[in-house]
Amino acid sequence: MQPTADQRRWMYRHMVLSRYLEERIEALYMEGKTPVFNMAKGPIPGEMHLSNGQEPCAVGVCAHLSADDIVTATHRPHHIAVAKGVDLDAMVAEIFGKATGLAGGRGGHMHLFDAAVNFSCSGIIGEGLGPAVGAALSRKLQGKSGVAVAFMGEGAANQGAFHEALNLAAVWQLPVVFVIEDNAWGISVAKQASTAVPRNDLRAAAYGIPGHHVADNDVEGVFAAAGEAIARAREGQGPSLIEIETARLAGHFMGDGEDYRPKGEKEGLQARDPIPRYRQALLDAGVLDEAGNAALVAEAHARVEAAIRFAQQSEFLPPEAALEQVFAGESS
């Protein structure tokens, strides 16, 4: 399955948008955290998991989805949220903890919910799989269209939830696609030290469902595999599993020294950064020219800057608003 020129530009634009968002968040996150790193300080406190390098997974999958389709994402959610079309202003405001954020600041960067585009994420490994299966069941029971995609890291394949959710989705033949972003590291533990099989897509055989493997963080490889899996789900033929070899160009979280990585690994990954690679591919293919690239990058940067301004200029909710929205129907 080949993307059209429009789809190629769409994927590239969202990779650029996501990366620039992460770069700006990184800079703002570090405000107030130097020279002494204190996670509670600065305009964006708390843990921060940046998605630099993993953009191909998000855009290659979401290129096949509409707002009506369901996505559950992980503790490293920004690239997927961007590609799924989450309201960028409200998302950034939530990352800043502001009143105009998706949840008024109750959730923060690991708990982003945008019901308008059926996006959610959560902070615990493998946690989004069950809900994706349930959303797919909901569509099947209601006779409504729509597929659910559960994103996870490669570490999630070793959670019990992975086995339970894949078995349940397969036994009920639900329209759900499981996407593993294999960045080779579970915080500091390498995939080969934690996982008994070299490739998690091989585990699809255990559930009698198709497995796909995408090597080398290849945007169009993700597009092709996801296209096949999502079309299959839409046709009522049940779930699929995809594992994508991707790259974590930032640490596990901001402040991670990454001393556990072998010498030179990070430099090697940065040299294979998927964004310049894809830009060159599009330039070579003639679907993008230098002027078009410059305009696209400028527009993406302007969009991110506008979202950041929106967040910075927004107020915090009064602290006692923490008591509201525990239950549905409570005032905000």
């Binding site: 946690e127 069950g130 069941l137 569509r139 939830a161 349940l168």
Partner: peptide
């Protein structure tokens, strides 16, 4: 009225997903 596998994590998680989707 669905009999499930013995997979409480999956089917209770699925109930959350279905409830969030309008069921």
């Amino acid at each position: 009225v669905r009999d499930t596998p013995i997979s409480e994590t999956a089917f209770i998680g699925a109930a959350v997903g279905a409830a969030s989707d309008g069921m």
